[in-house]
Simulated assay, not measured.
Amino acid sequence: MSRRHEKRAARSGREAQVPPAGTACPLCLRPIPPGARASRHHLIPRLKGGTHRGTVLLHHICHQAIHARFTEAELARRFAEPETLRAEPRLAEFLGWVASKPPDFHAPTRISRDRTPKWR
């Protein structure tokens, strides 16, 4: 996500989610403590008709990892559940890496080399 989009998301409040006590990220299964960066992930992307079809609260870094590796079409077609995302080999390395980090850890995420952006 570009800085411009991060600023827009922060202004709109999408990134400023306060998780209820005991909430765990359905992707990495680590707890989401109050004050940690968290964001809502549409199970079916909004661009593919998922505006009102449900969301899950994820660590922001986990949310970025999903969108860095998969296109909107792939997410809509094959990955509408957190369980299918966890089982995907393209996320396995990330999930193994982030499992050793503290629950409030955040770092920038780059677009994966195996995902071809639309703008290229």
Rank of each mutant, 00 (worst) to 15 (best):
S2D: 12
S2Q: 06
L29I: 06
P20E: 14
R77C: 02
S112L: 05
F105A: 12
P19A: 15
R110A: 15
A92S: 12
A73L: 14
F79C: 01
R53N: 05
T84A: 13
A36G: 05
T84C: 01
F94N: 05
M1T: 09
S12K: 13
I111H: 12
H52D: 14
K7V: 09
H5Y: 03
T109L: 06
R11I: 02
K101Q: 15
P19S: 10
H106N: 07
R3M: 03
H41C: 00
P31L: 04
V18T: 14
K48S: 09
L91Y: 09
S12N: 14
G22C: 02
A24F: 08
F105N: 00
P102F: 09
T84D: 12
A65S: 12
P20D: 13
A9E: 14
H59M: 08
R46E: 10
E93V: 11
R30W: 00
E93C: 02
S112D: 15
K48V: 00
T116K: 14
R120G: 06
E74T: 01
T55E: 14
P117R: 04
I66K: 03
A80T: 15
P26I: 02
H63D: 07
R86W: 07
V56P: 04
L58Y: 07
P45D: 08
R90K: 10
I66N: 01
A99T: 04
V18H: 08
P20L: 11
R69G: 01
K48Q: 15
K101T: 07
R3G: 13
R78K: 09
T71R: 04
M1V: 13
L47Y: 00
G35C: 11
R86H: 08
P103V: 12
H5M: 14
P34Y: 02
H59A: 08
P26K: 04
F94T: 11
I61P: 04
R69W: 08
M1S: 05
R40N: 07
R14T: 10
L75K: 09
P82M: 11
Q17T: 01
A36W: 03
R53M: 15
C62R: 04
P33M: 04
A76T: 12
Q64T: 01
H41K: 07
L91D: 07
A36Q: 06
Q64P: 01
R3I: 14
R37L: 15
T84V: 05
A87Y: 05
E81D: 10
G22N: 07
T71K: 04
G49Q: 04
T116H: 13
R53D: 10
P34L: 01
A92E: 13
P19H: 10
A16V: 10
A73I: 11
E74R: 10
R30N: 02
R14C: 02
S112F: 06
R69N: 11
R53S: 13
R8E: 14
H59Y: 09
T109S: 06
R53A: 13
R120A: 14
R120K: 12
T23W: 09
H60D: 13
P34G: 10
G49T: 00
S112P: 00
V18L: 13
P34C: 05
E6Y: 06
R40P: 00
F70Q: 03
